[in-house]
Design a binder for these strands. Structure first.
Ligand SMILES: NC(=O)c1ccc[n+]([C@@H]2O[C@H](COP(=O)([O-])OP(=O)(O)OC[C@H]3O[C@@H](n4cnc5c(N)ncnc54)[C@H](O)[C@@H]3O)[C@@H](O)[C@H]2O)c1
Ligand SMILES: NC(=O)c1ccc[n+]([C@@H]2O[C@H](COP(=O)([O-])OP(=O)(O)OC[C@H]3O[C@@H](n4cnc5c(N)ncnc54)[C@H](O)[C@@H]3O)[C@@H](O)[C@H]2O)c1
Lengths: 259, 259
DNA sequence: ATGCCTTTGTGAACGCGTGCACAAAGATGG
DNA sequence: CCATCTTTGTGCACGCGTTCACAAAGGCAT
């Protein structure tokens, strides 16, 4: 139990900035960086919002949490806003990151250029497989799990990425936390349990696909407006052996019925 | 403008099931599958909730949208629930998927076993690089972009995964949509614009890291409880040359001030 | 200087999601 | 058949996030 608090109750009242806003700041920053590279001096909330794919009122409200950085009748100064958001997100400093589990995914992550584009720097690659030790991936030698604590300590790493198989994830997580890491990005399909004060974010491809499949099914099913009697199979197994009245009207279960 | 509707206004009234619940169903399903493999016959909402890392009341409410599948005083039948959730998510049928952009990430995705574990099947791998054509990745030959429409059509693919560089993503997206795809999972760091009726979900590593960095910075700053006057730099560029009253207390801008 | 026109910043209403707390349902034991 | 105990299903309240709509702010032209 105590499978680790999710969400961020924000310790109570953080200094402002709703979580939903924080999640959008990187989006704005990306759009602003693109404008900056094209030497666009200012943007209106309307333009920037459409570039970021959000509602303009939402964007203005988001920015209002950072302060009043716009000029009425004109818009926002691109460079200045880039700096303000970067600072707010903590991107003015660089963040050493360790990646644990250098398999297919871990190697792809290590090779990912977008890592360094913001203030993130791959400090070390860690894997339990001894045959990988020393092998260079993306120009960095893979180190054995034994080195984990030392690496984290020496480089002052506070962000860890887990790309190991699901079975090893919790164990790796525990070690990362014990080593002093307080933020984890988890690619393994497992719920991680962490102590208070440690943030976990997860990226789960399988979940995303399942959500898409749900909507896809709905779209397909819309053609057949048989709203009433398509779904309800109406046969909860209830008492394990007592009930089993009949097979139920749902039939055609693909061999997954309760034994 | 019209950078593509985000969210899912659910076409108006979908048949129930809040989006937040849909997003958790795969989580429950994963936990239930694990229980099923251990031949556990029933679970209480409390147990299952902790395994999935959510609140038990939330879980019960989520299940209530699917119908009354529990037995009071006992809990939920694992197998039956697995089936019900699978069916609700559309996992009883198999979903052919195309992956476009077989680079570091695309190849990792193609090799990913978790794909097939649910009803997803990699129908084709597509890349614009002619030198990749025919090369087998994860046992499947990479096909050239020219084949895209044919592949989608022949296999009845409705879900596409974009793993190309950001610059090519919108273009690839447009082609996928034109070919008949209505659900897209986007790994490229770009906002995709799609017509109504097409669902887009994104996975953005960089955004996740930036969110972690934000909280990390906050944790570090908590030591100094100078709540009031740490943040407000109070120097929006405002009128380009007119304002500039003084440099403000923030100082130390790392050479990023507006010209 | 003055008025017009654009765009910000935000008050307020609304809807969704969350979690509490409890009555009802049902199993289980006597 | 009844009492007791467990666990579901949900009414309700609350808080967060979204969106509308508009007054105030400020640039710009005359
Ligand atoms: N490949 C993908 O596209 C993809 C997509 C989504 C999720 N995932 C998840 O990401 C994880 C990694 O996927 P993958 O395809 O790279 O798997 P992989 O098997 O290719 O790589 C896993 C690596 O982790 C290492 N490892 C195992 N136990 C370890 C431990 N205790 N400490 C350190 N390293 C350890 C292994 O030596 C191996 O190199 C899995 O959990 C997978 O479910 C992968
Ligand atoms: N590698 C990662 O870990 C990672 C993480 C997060 C996001 N991303 C994003 O995922 C995308 C792919 O990353 P990557 O590291 O695999 O890049 P990559 O350069 O290794 O691979 C890109 C592939 O896309 C192909 N391609 C280019 N244009 C195409 C087009 N128009 N049609 C079809 N194929 C085309 C290229 O030939 C190449 O094979 C990028 O947008 C990147 O920002 C990658």
């Amino acid at each position: 139990m105590a499978t680790g608090r999710n969400h961020r109750p924000a310790t109570s009242r953080s200094r402002g900035i709703p979580e939903a806003t924080v999640a959008r700041l990187p989006l704005y920053l990306r759009a602003l960086t693109a404008l900056s590279e094209r030497s666009v001096p200012t943007v209106s909330s309307e333009e920037l919002a459409s570039a970021a794919g959000v509602n303009s009122a939402k964007l203005r409200k988001d920015f209002s949490y950072l302060g009043s950085y716009g000029t009425r009748g004109v818009g926002y100064d691109v460079e200045y806003l880039v700096y303000q958001i970067s600072r707010e997100l903590g991107l003015t400093q660089d963040w050493p990151v360790v990646i644990v589990g250098i398999g297919n995914l871990g190697a792809a992550l290590a090779n990912y250029g977008g890592f360094a584009s913001r203030g993130f720097r791959v400090a070390a690659l860690i894997d339990a497989d001894p045959s990988l030790s020393g092998k260079p991936v993306a120009g960095i030698g893979v180190q054995h799990t034994d080195e984990l604590e030392k690496v984290v300590d020496d480089n002052g790493v506070s962000i860890g990425v887990i790309a190991t198989p699901a079975g090893a994830a919790q164990q790796v997580c525990d070690r990362l936390v014990a080593a002093g890491i307080t933020s984890i990005l988890n690619f393994a399909p497992t719920v991680l349990s962490v102590p208070e004060g440690v943030d976990v974010r997860k990226v789960d491809l399988s979940i995303e696909l399942q959500i898409l499949a749900f909507h896809e099914q709905r779209k397909a099913g819309e053609d057949v407006p048989a709203e009433e009697d398509t779904a309800p199979p109406a046969a909860p197994p209830a008492a394990s052996v007592t009930k089993r009245t009949d097979s139920g009207p749902d039939g055609d279960l693909p061999a997954v019925m309760p034994a």
